[in-house]
Simulated scan of single mutants.
Amino acid sequence: MNTKTTYGKEILWALLALAVLAAIPFLTPSRVVLDFVIRLAAFGIFATSLNILIGYGGLVSFGHAMFFGGGAYAFGLLMQKAGTSIPVAMLGAILFCALLGLVIGAICVRLKEIYFSFLTLAFAMLLHSVILTWMSLTGGDQGLMGGIPRPIFLGIDLSKPISLYGFACVVGIVSLLLMRGLMQSPFGYTLRMVRDNAERARFLGIDVWRVKLYAFIIASSFAGIAGSIMALFVSGAYPEFAYWTMSGEAIFMIMMGGLHVFIGPVVGAALLLIFNDLVTRFTELHGLALGIIVLVFALGFKRGISDFVVQFLRTLKNKRATP
């Protein structure tokens, strides 16, 4: 099966997913469900963008939240200060995160393993400190004050919950489809080759540093999209978006959902959001409870749940095929 045929099927799956999401508001009037899907769109993109580095590139970043937070602040400031339209502000957030990823990635991807991880963490903490101290621009620890305007564009009024829901769904599905296409492209397979054996890839004439840098920029840009959706949802941007714990949550989503199945991080994001909502409702020790849940997943499945399911189905298929 060629790549075009495979990608055509994935587009059909994406359209089917959009159709299902479009039906949800007609099936339930609950605002809680709509808000959950909007948050899932943001965190699903965020976790999947991080998995471009971890799952496909073998680069474990502890500072990916800097792009999530950076995208949220860039989007919010463009809307508040410059009065741009929503598409222009989102494009500006993407460009800001891509440029930030270019500068930081050019330094970080030269390093290996734990050094790469902790340098990304250091840069994330630096950006978080800038957000806290530059109060005249960012609002400090109070975040962007005054809300984010939602002017009508192309007849779409995002001040209406149902319109915001539809916008988040479309942006989420399109972003996932684009990331899937990139990872199934020659670049994606080159990135896997670099992950598996960088020396062999270098011997074949591949510029390993450049491939890793491109992956870093791509992941940063999509994290900026996720931050923009979250800024629209909460009508603001807050320092917590760029804090290191946000990167940790994305890593938990990948661990719970799966590294090796593309949709795994989205599954993990849904699980973590559900568990977080349930735990915070029933106990104040939500940190401890979530830690235990993640530990159960790590020890029980020994991989993300989507990886576990795919491996189980393959094993079952092989047993049936064996005479």
Rank of each mutant, 00 (worst) to 15 (best):
T6P: 03
W13L: 15
L15N: 11
A17S: 14
L18T: 07
A23L: 15
F26D: 10
S30M: 09
R31Y: 07
R31I: 04
D35V: 02
L40A: 02
I45A: 03
L50V: 09
L50E: 06
L53P: 02
I54P: 02
I54S: 04
F62T: 04
H64L: 04
H64I: 03
A65M: 03
F68R: 01
G69H: 00
G70T: 03
G70S: 08
G71N: 05
F75K: 00
F75C: 01
L77G: 02
Q80R: 14
K81L: 10
G83C: 10
T84L: 15
I86A: 02
A89F: 00
C97I: 06
C97A: 13
A98T: 08
L100Y: 04
L100K: 02
I104C: 10
I104P: 01
V109G: 05
R110C: 05
L111P: 01
Y115N: 13
F116H: 06
F123E: 05
H128M: 09
I131V: 15
L132D: 11
L132A: 08
L132V: 09
M135R: 15
G143V: 01
M145V: 12
G147A: 11
I148H: 00
P149H: 07
I152G: 05
S159G: 14
S159P: 06
K160L: 13
L164H: 01
Y165M: 10
G166Y: 07
V171Y: 12
V171D: 05
S175C: 06
L182A: 14
M183Y: 09
M193V: 12
M193K: 08
D196V: 11
D196L: 09
A198V: 09
E199W: 07
F203C: 11
F203E: 11
G205C: 11
G205Y: 13
V208P: 03
R210P: 01
V211E: 08
A219L: 08
A223W: 00
I225C: 01
A231E: 03
F233W: 11
G236C: 05
A237I: 00
W244Q: 04
T245Y: 11
A250P: 00
F252R: 02
G258R: 09
H260N: 14
V261H: 10
I263E: 13
G264E: 12
V267I: 15
G268Y: 11
A269R: 00
A269W: 01
L273Q: 11
I274G: 04
F275P: 00
F275L: 12
N276D: 14
V279G: 05
R281D: 14
G287L: 14
L290E: 08
G291T: 08
L295H: 09
V296N: 09
L299S: 07
F301S: 04
R303I: 04
R303F: 03
G304D: 09
I305C: 08
S306R: 04
Q311C: 06
K319W: 11
R320C: 05
A321V: 05
